[in-house]
């Protein structure tokens, strides 16, 4: 059976949730083969086995951790050449869209960005995309080469399907051209215990309405009561009330959770672009005219400092303690 290549998202040997989703998706179209670029594959191997990777191609060593997108694209291009896969699936992150772009050029292939679903129709892969801030649904397919698809996290539910996940170490050298941009330092801002923003099933986001950095605490507390990730509007990250990596929107992270709570956020188009495909949306805002209410499945017009504490109290009551 032909392979479907899945680029693994990992950090410190841990495999991210989205990789399980992509392996689940891949299974429908061929034999899932994970591609691990960087160190720590042996630690992540059991996870990949659990989610159905028949093989794990591994490219590790210094050349694979110290450069921007070039090495990933080189490895995938070599594998496309060697294995003629049905498709290459990568999680839709800023970094991976770039990898996909370079890979598309190297392999003369079409690339489909930000898929929220993938089906096989008339013998080819068709991706579902949600464009123009979610107002239009597009189905598209590639016309040349191997479909290279960037898939949004939370597009499908990851389902275990044990497989061998046999490690295959690749004997490749990274081209000089791929080493043009050298990473000299990685500065990681800690997320703590909370789920990761892009992958979380529930996201609670706060906007300028929280009033101050201290005010933002109410958002963190609400998130914790729901086991949710914390997000923020640009107004909040600009003001320095919360770090930029939590920004949701056009120039922040795109999220597509089961539940999105927008608290004290007006719903500017750039914010909506990053959360509009959330399955259920709740808004709390004191202005009844705030555009966020146009999207909300449930909205409360009121002061967030009244509404949110009461909501938390009720959540705590109902969750049985």
């Amino acid at each position: 059976m032909a392979e479907v290549l899945v680029l693994v998202e990992h950090s410190g040997g841990d495999v991210k949730k989205v990789t399980g989703e992509l392996l689940t998706m891949a299974r429908q179209f061929g034999e899932p083969a994970a591609v691990w670029v960087g160190n720590g594959a042996a630690d992540g191997q059991p996870r990949l086995a659990e989610y159905g990777a028949a093989k794990v191609y591994v490219a590790d060593g210094a050349d694979y951790t110290g450069y921007v997108t070039g090495p990933e694209a080189d490895v995938l291009a070599a594998l496309v050449e060697q294995t003629s896969p049905v498709a290459v699936l990568v999680a839709s992150t800023g970094q991976n869209k770039e990898v996909a772009g370079r890979l598309a050029i190297k392999t003369d292939s079409g690339m489909l960005c930000d898929a929220v679903g993938l089906v096989s129709a008339d013998g080819r892969l068709v991706a579902e995309q949600s464009v123009f801030g979610g107002s239009t649904i597009v189905h598209s397919a590639v016309r040349t080469g191997t479909p290279i698809v960037t898939v949004r996290p939370n597009s499908v539910a990851a389902e275990p399907a044990p497989a061998a996940a046999e490690l295959h170490r690749l004997d490749l050298t990274v081209s000089e051209a791929a080493k043009g941009a050298r990473v000299t330092e990685k500065i990681v801002q800690e997320t703590g215990e909370r789920p990761e923003l892009a992958e979380a099933a529930i996201v609670v986001s706060g906007g300028r309405g929280v009033g101050s950095a201290d005010g933002f605490e109410v958002i963190e507390k609400l998130a914790d009561s729901l086991g949710a990730a914390v997000g923020a509007s640009r107004a909040v990250t600009d003001a320095g009330w919360y770090p930029h990596k939590f920004q949701v929107g056009q120039t922040g992270t795109t999220v597509s959770p089961q539940l999105y709570l927008a608290v004290g956020i007006s719903g500017a188009i750039q914010h909506r672009a990053g959360m509009q495909t959330s399955k259920t949306i709740i808004a709390v805002n004191k202005d009844p005219e705030a555009p966020i209410f146009e999207l909300a499945d449930f909205g409360v017009v009121g002061d967030l400092f009244q509404v949110v504490p009461q909501l938390m109290e009720d959540i705590q009551k109902r969750s049985g303690n």
Binding site: V68, G94, Q95, R182, V183, K186, I187, T191, A198, K245
Partner: peptide, 8 residues
């Protein structure tokens, strides 16, 4: 980057 920033 997803988790902060890189110097490149």
């Amino acid at each position: 980057s997803e988790d902060g920033f890189w110097k490149v």
